[in-house]
Design a binder for these strands. Structure first.
Lengths: 380, 380
DNA sequence: TTGAAAGCGCTAACAG
DNA sequence: CTGTTAGCGCTTTCAA
């Protein structure tokens, strides 16, 4: 039993296919025609085929979603946000996971292009060159959670917002009422995120001009570092993951002075590498008393490594982790975290990519919140 | 700059479109023609449009994936498995999350039908009626992790494999070499999972005949219960989630005798409901000494509720949780779990749904493993 | 308000 | 081995 086509409906209703199409997409038609068509369509259990429509319109509906790892609760939450928005719009979502590997990312972009998916939400890992093809092909792209690494300009770039603003949020919003602060923040052109310095000569190759939904990393990190400093900690380490340059930068800035680079270590996206990095750090620098983990998988690794080395949290080591995830509370002690509104980020990114008409939508910067639990203590 | 079509390539190469199509899909062509076409295609950066192909073939490639909740690490891992397989096949995956709500599930199925996605992997929550439309439409469906609830037959159904077999695995494999036991298990017709009793009169409405990738719940639960009993526990409670009838049944059977139904409580898919259920259970039955949580979100809730009520684990309460998730180790104490090969399940489900020719593929039953950590102790 | 007709890009059947 | 051609189901001019 084959599916009914628009032609079947047209014949059964004694009208032309164009009329059926119009009725079903809310075009104009006389009431009686409309009613008849609707009745017949329902009776035949007609479902318009997306295939025909897509070919005709030269575009697949819905959106793509590219994430590093669905195993990471943060991205799981982000994805749920996207799906929630897509569902309410009745749009399909094509998902792909990149494992933070630019090559896989490029492949997935190619696949989406082949499918004529022209809207894409991504947590990018590749650089501008990975992304240019998608943009040139006319895809509407929205980045979430982070931006592609900027091509390193010749001269080391000073903080884009000028002299170390209190936070990105404030930087972007200087002169805005504090009521607006609690609102979701808008800013334009993510390439030059905060206070666009009109005169500053940027490198000729301007980064990508793609809207993004980000959280205020600078403020998140700064709050955490200040909190730790307030507890007396001086040797604070940072454990970072891939694509997180903004956070590291924020960390360097927050600790102030000449940062002790040995206290800043990185891993790639895998659990193993995170564990190795954490473990290595603890062993080479037993003098550190606090750690900021730049992501929940890193926090996981840090807690595990600390336990393995018999470092007691928070007695021997204070830990703050980026991302609030369900298990943070189950941990012993419960982890103090920098919470990001993961689900909202996904939802808003989906909104952006769906609403995007011809105009490029604006970027969104969401606030973070330091959730104090039990993993930080005074320096002893 | 528009994308090149097959026609452009044909013209530029001085051949017909059919030839291009043939060359690109590995059909026969003379070496020089092939070479020329390939060269031109590369030169024009030609990418075949899935739109045209899909319409022509009346089917969208790739597969759908329906999960209850991406926030649940178990499903995140499952999804990663599916994506890994899909990626290596170059196939797109359309994802949807149902929140264990049959209505949303039905809607998503409808959406996939509209997209002509004809392969679907699902952790089902709706019953047979929800799924029949998809099957009637000719979708190749593979269930993962669980099956739709069976329509309750008039007479209470005895254990389908006869007199309480040691486990589903063994039940399905009686007479099979023990070497094969460590292999992935095959069995036919999931509707009548284990030892198909030829003579037994089943209800007229046979359940769905859909292949599935499951784990051996019976053995998983039984092992856990036996472990707890070995530690001296007698009042063992079970905290269950939606769509988990097999596990509860296994639990009832494992505890033997007349189960104390008050010790068996359920929640829906949400964290809140799980917490409420756990908390309620602990308060109404302070005499229980051990708990089996039928899923990782339930385990999470149980640990939280126990902590809230000042029940020490494992001193006051021993806990075994279904699903091994990264945070199980971070928990204090680290949780003893029934581990399922989540990623493999996803991968294998994807294999099944992709390999499915006209023949219905066989079901797969994977083993579980009791991972003993620190959340269980002797009854005091 | 309505219908006829022209494709969108591709594959498969058929003819050469 | 290769080219021509007929659609797949739909939307969208363009006339009527």
């Amino acid at each position: 039993m084959k599916r009914a086509t628009i032609k079947d409906v047209a014949e059964a209703a004694g009208v032309g296919v164009a009329t059926v199409s119009r009725v079903l997409s809310g075009g104009s038609a006389s009431p009686q025609t409309r009613e008849r068509v609707l009745a017949v369509a329902a009776q035949l259990d007609y479902r318009p085929s997306a295939l025909g429509r897509n070919l005709r319109q030269q575009r697949t509906g819905g959106m793509g979603l590219l994430l590093p790892d669905l195993t990471d609760s943060f991205y799981g939450q982000l994805a749920e946000g996207v799906l929630a928005c897509a569902r309410s719009a009745g749009e399909p979502v094509v998902i792909g996971s990149t494992a933070d590997d630019p090559e896989q990312e490029a492949e997935l972009i190619g696949m989406l292009l082949e499918q004529s998916v022209d809207r894409l939400i991504a947590v990018p890992c590749g650089d501008a060159d990975t992304w240019r093809p998608a943009l040139k092909a006319g895809m509407t792209v929205v980045f979430a959670d982070r931006l592609p690494p900027e091509p390193d300009p010749g001269t080391p770039q000073p903080d884009p917002a000028g002299a170390a603003p209190e936070s990105e949020l404030e930087g972007a919003l200087s002169g805005v009422s504090s009521a607006a602060l609690s609102e979701l923040m808008m800013l334009d052109g993510v390439g030059a995120l905060p206070g666009a310095r009109p005169a500053a000569p940027r490198p000729a190759v301007r980064p990508l001009d793609v809207p993004a939904v980000l959280t205020d990393d600078r403020s998140g990190i700064r709050t955490a570092v200040q909190y730790l400093r307030g507890l007396g900690h001086r040797r604070i380490a940072y454990l970072g993951g891939p694509g997180r340059e903004r956070r590291v930068e924020a960390f360097r800035q927050a600790v102030g002075g000449v940062p002790d680079e040995e206290l800043i270590v990185f891993s790639d996206g895998s659990r193993d590498s995170a564990y190795a990095a954490a473990s290595g750090l603890f062993q080479t620098r037993p003098d550190l008393t606090a750690l900021v983990a730049g992501g929940n998988m890193l926090g996981e690794a840090a807690v595990l490594a600390a336990r393995e080395l018999d470092l007691r949290v928070p007695r021997d080591l204070s830990v703050v982790m980026y991302d609030d995830v369900p298990w943070a509370e189950l941990c012993s002690p419960p982890l103090t975290v920098i919470a990001q509104p993961a689900r909202d980020m996904g939802y808003r990114a989906a909104e952006l990519v769906l609403r995007a008409g011809s105009r490029r939508p604006r970027s969104v910067l969401l606030p973070t919140e330091l959730v104090i639990r039990g993993s930080c203590g005074p320096r002893l």
